[in-house]
Write a protein that binds this DNA or RNA. Structure first.
Length: 567
DNA sequence: TTCCCAACTT
């Protein structure tokens, strides 16, 4: 249909516009808005035409706003909703709530929600999701408990929230409740993705395998997101071959950059640097998939763990030169790490000085551990000072600083650091390790042996283990014990023997059959002494032991570690 | 024949 005189006015709105009546009704406007890539930009025009938004219009506009990065428009549209009289419509309300990326708690008080609003699942689910994004876990749990009904979205949201807020074990508990409760809905791909993320965090391979089987059994089609979650889970549980298998099962045309990146990153933390780089080349050259900033992070991490300085240099410059990706602080962090580990402390400094941003704790941490390994005390001191400035409550940095001064013989400074620790009321970061036994994840905190239900047996196991290690000539490396413990040598050894990863390994030896693999996940970096001890344990007890620390994998086997003592 | 809530890689 051609409408004389109207084409020019409307042709720049949308190619299909001329199909509509010259003064489109709201149904037509909604269709146009929906099909336009930037619907919000058409909204003023729609108002000028005298059309009033209805309950279908607002959800479209809100979702368009979220991609616009124009936060000042949000309250205005919010006001339009209030004036329109569509506020209580569940879809409108739900899109309004969820477009506040994290709902300010005071705003929540001003939302004129009625009890009837909260009976609508989209509304209460949006609220739940917003609370979780804002980190309001206890409020979210209360809302979940008080919701008159819950669907699979509500359950998935809360499970996912637990994972993202650092409670993966609670996420698994909730998932078990969901499975056991006959009134609860069946899990769907969203739920499964969240549960897989929890398994990945915890290194819970048995449960992860069970989930994979569940996907099969329930004929859930593994789309690219679900498969990526599986790859990530397998990679973080040390099963890179299973990850590879999932990757192979996805048809090449469906693999996106995220999936490739998950694979590259999995190979990198495993220490398989060359394979990671081969994957990267296959992705870019053979399959024509463009890398993103995260892909380069994974590539650089592969170089870091493989000690590939030249390659790291090459990819870092190729990233901005060929892909136009501006390096973020994480990319610079990789480069500092790469140089510092390789003993190229001056180049590490040069990188820090070349960054357009201020160094963060990761940068100083990378510089610190590199300069420590290579005996550059002055750089250690500078890095530690940088850390303390950023994290004045983190005691590890003070202890390291004190150690560095002691090594230099600066005893004045040693005592002034001790005074600083006391005066600032510094907390000690707690080491924490996970081990999964029979699909249940057990958590061990450093030094905390007495709280465990099997404390006596575990204590005996630790003693036996340490005894056998001493028999093999292992002497506890007490140099890294926190100075503020003020312990005699023997006490220091005791503190070392209750490091969380040793407790977890001892528990694993106690609870699994001879010859079975032991997999432990630790929240901090593995300490030098534990690394030595576990290396020996793998030989003495003839066990393959996987330890994933916050940085990478260590696969201990017959007295060797896959990191080749380079970590 | 138009709308909503929840998912992946650092």
């Amino acid at each position: 249909m051609r409408i004389p005189g109207k084409e020019r006015l409307i042709s720049n709105i949308h190619p299909s516009f001329h199909l509509f009546h010259p003064t489109p009704d709201i149904f037509a406007w909604n269709s146009i808005l929906r099909s336009h890539p930037n619907s919000f930009s058409l909204y003023p025009r729609m108002l000028r035409h005298g059309s009033r938004p209805d309950s279908y219009t607002f959800p479209i506009l809100f979702s368009s706003l979220s991609s616009l990065l124009a936060p000042f428009l949000l309250p205005q549209l919010h006001a339009h909703v209030l004036l329109s009289g569509h506020f209580h419509h569940p879809h409108v309300l739900s899109s309004l709530i969820s477009s506040y990326s994290c709902l300010p708690s005071d705003l929540l008080l001003f939302l004129p929600l009625s009890p009837a609003d909260l009976e609508e699942l989209p509304t209460s689910n949006s609220l739940l999701s917003s609370l979780l994004r804002a980190g309001q876990l206890s409020h979210a749990c209360r809302l979940f408990d008080e919701m008159p009904s819950r669907n699979v979205v509500s359950w998935s949201c809360l499970i996912d929230g637990f994972v993202n807020l650092g409670h993966p074990n609670a996420a698994l508990d909730l998932f078990r409740i969901m499975l056991a409760d006959p009134r609860a809905p069946a899990p769907n791909p969203f739920t499964i993705t969240a549960v897989l993320a929890a398994c990945a965090r915890l290194g819970a391979l048995q449960l992860g395998l069970w989930i994979h089987a569940f996907i099969f059994r329930h004929c859930i089609p593994p789309d690219v997101v679900l498969s990526t979650s599986l790859i990530d889970m397998y990679a973080k549980c040390g099963r890179i071959h299973n990850a590879h298998q999932v990757f192979d099962e996805m048809s090449p045309s469906n693999r996106d950059v995220t999936m490739w990146t998950a694979m590259i990153s999995g190979l990198a933390v495993q220490g398989w640097a060359r394979e990671a780089l081969e994957f990267f080349h296959s992705m870019v050259e053979t399959h024509g998939v463009g890398p993103n900033p995260v892909t380069f992070l994974a590539v650089l991490q592969a170089c870091v763990h493989g000690g590939l300085v030249q390659e790291g240099d090459f990819y870092f410059s190729a990233m901005s030169r060929e892909q136009g990706i501006v390096p973020t602080i994480e990319h610079y962090g990789c480069m500092v790490d790469l140089y510092a580990r390789a003993g190229m402390i001056r180049r590490a400094w040069a990188t820090i000085h070349s960054m357009p941003m201020r160094p963060d704790a990761l940068i100083w941490g990378a510089l610190l551990s590199g300069s420590k390994t290579h005996g550059d005390i002055l750089t250690c001191e500078a890095a530690i000072k940088g850390l303390i400035e950023l994290e004045p409550e983190n005691s590890a940095a003070y202890v390291l600083l004190s150690n560095a001064y002691a090594k230099m013989g600066k005893w004045e400074e040693v005592s002034s650091v001790r005074r600083l620790i006391k005066s600032r009321g510094v907390k000690k970061p707690t080491g924490c390790s996970f081990i999964e036994v029979n699909s249940v994840v057990h958590e061990f905190l450093a030094g905390e042996l007495s709280n465990h239900p099997e404390a006596v047996d575990l204590h005996l196991m630790v003693e036996e283990m340490m005894g056998r290690l001493r028999g093999e000539g292992h002497v506890g490396n007490t140099a890294e014990v926190l100075l503020d413990l003020d312990l005699e040598e023997e006490g220091k050894e005791l503190a070392l023997s209750t490091h969380s990863e040793k407790l977890a390994v001892a528990f694993g030896l106690m609870k699994t059959k001879p010859g079975e693999e032991i997999r432990v996940v630790k929240n901090l970096r593995i300490c030098l002494d534990c690394h030595e001890a576990i290396r020996l344990i793998s030989k003495v007890y003839a066990r393959r032991i996987f330890v994933r620390d916050c940085n990478r994998f260590h696969v201990f086997n017959n007295g060797d570690c896959s990191c080749k003592n380079y970590w």
